[in-house]
Amino acid sequence: MTQLRKPLIAAATGERPSRRPVWFMRQAGRSLPEYRALRSGRGMLESCFDPDLVAEITMQPVRRHDVDAAILFSDIVVPLKAAGIDLDIVTGTGPVIAEPIRDRAAVRALPRLVPEAVGSIGHAIGAIREQLDDECALIGFAGAPFTLASYLVEGGPSRNYERTKALMHGEPDTWHELVGALADITITFLRVQLEAGVDAVQLFDSWAGMLSLADYEHFVAPHSRRVLAEVADFGRPRIHFGVGTGELLHAMGDVGADVVGVDWRIPLDVAGRRVGGGKALQGNLDPAMLNASWDTVAASVRRIVAEGDRAVAAGAGGHIFNLGHGVLPATDPDVLTKIVELVHSL
């Protein structure tokens, strides 16, 4: 079976898939008991650089759920760590930066990523491809420059991004130099994954929804556009996703995405009109809904499928079923399996 006939790739490129593709952000991870057993006693970053472990964790939800895509087990800060930035992923907190980047001197001292530093990820992709069947796509991913910059400037996760916004507006030249350097790192990381054989890539601008449209277009879009342009020559679908981005959807699609991920706050048919351009949509079941009764979950799945169908009828390129953000740790994996079965039956 050719790559373009994989259901996810077909839906992402305007073809008619053999079935509606479905996968879940953070499917390879905390909700699975087999994942927790495998990760016991191993740090997150240590795990992300172990190719055998990466391959096994990536494959676990494929075996369990019959999803239409595997997504590489990794983290958006992996290329920063590989480049030599001093950081750690702290349980219950997230990425923590040892020395936050807040002036031009620190920006100019940032290390660059060389492909060899993420060679283990390429090896993991090769091992995953050997295990996937012809219909299951493999998605690689990276953090978008803005989201990476927000961690580096704030020193870790933030509620208000006050330091980030202060740098953007107060020292715009320094900001663009920082985000430009991070775009270089992201491009290198994505190209390593594409050269190793992933079928599509997703650019996570997880926290772009904290920005106004004007700030996004001026301070963020040029750098995301360059990232997506620099991987366009591979001819593989590029997915772009952020949380709380209802007002940014058209702009996020306009930077070069083939598929725009939609969170749960906006119906897919409304999102399709905002995105425009015949682009495919991905999403958008609220991950918190997975704790409700099965009847409630099933009704929500059917509603989202109907909204996706309306979006496609109105001109969207296709629909890939997903959550509106990542799987929550307490989610019952059996619910995810039942969702896949239901989506494939509709």
Score class of each variant (00 low, 15 high):
283 G>F: 06
260 V>K: 00
315 G>T: 00
255 V>H: 12
282 Q>I: 03
283 G>T: 05
264 W>E: 13
297 V>W: 09
319 H>G: 04
266 I>M: 07
307 E>N: 11
311 A>E: 10
285 L>A: 12
300 S>H: 11
280 A>S: 10
306 A>T: 15
269 D>V: 15
301 V>K: 10
268 L>F: 02
270 V>M: 08
278 G>S: 07
299 A>P: 07
270 V>E: 07
258 D>M: 06
287 P>S: 05
273 R>W: 02
289 M>C: 15
304 I>P: 13
308 G>L: 05
312 V>T: 08
270 V>F: 08
261 G>L: 00
249 L>F: 01
271 A>V: 03
246 G>V: 08
249 L>A: 03
257 A>L: 10
278 G>L: 03
296 T>M: 07
256 G>V: 10
319 H>T: 00
297 V>I: 15
256 G>T: 06
309 D>V: 01
318 G>F: 00
309 D>A: 04
310 R>K: 15
295 D>F: 08
266 I>V: 12
262 V>I: 14
318 G>M: 02
293 S>L: 08
262 V>Q: 11
306 A>K: 10
266 I>L: 15
310 R>C: 12
306 A>R: 14
265 R>W: 13
265 R>K: 15
278 G>Q: 03
293 S>N: 12
281 L>K: 00
316 A>C: 07
269 D>H: 09
264 W>S: 04
312 V>H: 09
310 R>N: 14
297 V>L: 11
249 L>Y: 04
249 L>C: 06
289 M>F: 09
258 D>V: 05
296 T>E: 14
248 L>V: 05
282 Q>S: 05
306 A>Q: 15
314 A>H: 09
287 P>F: 01
286 D>T: 06
287 P>Y: 09
257 A>Q: 07
262 V>H: 13
273 R>A: 06
311 A>N: 14
292 A>W: 07
253 G>T: 02
294 W>M: 14
314 A>C: 04
277 G>D: 13
285 L>F: 08
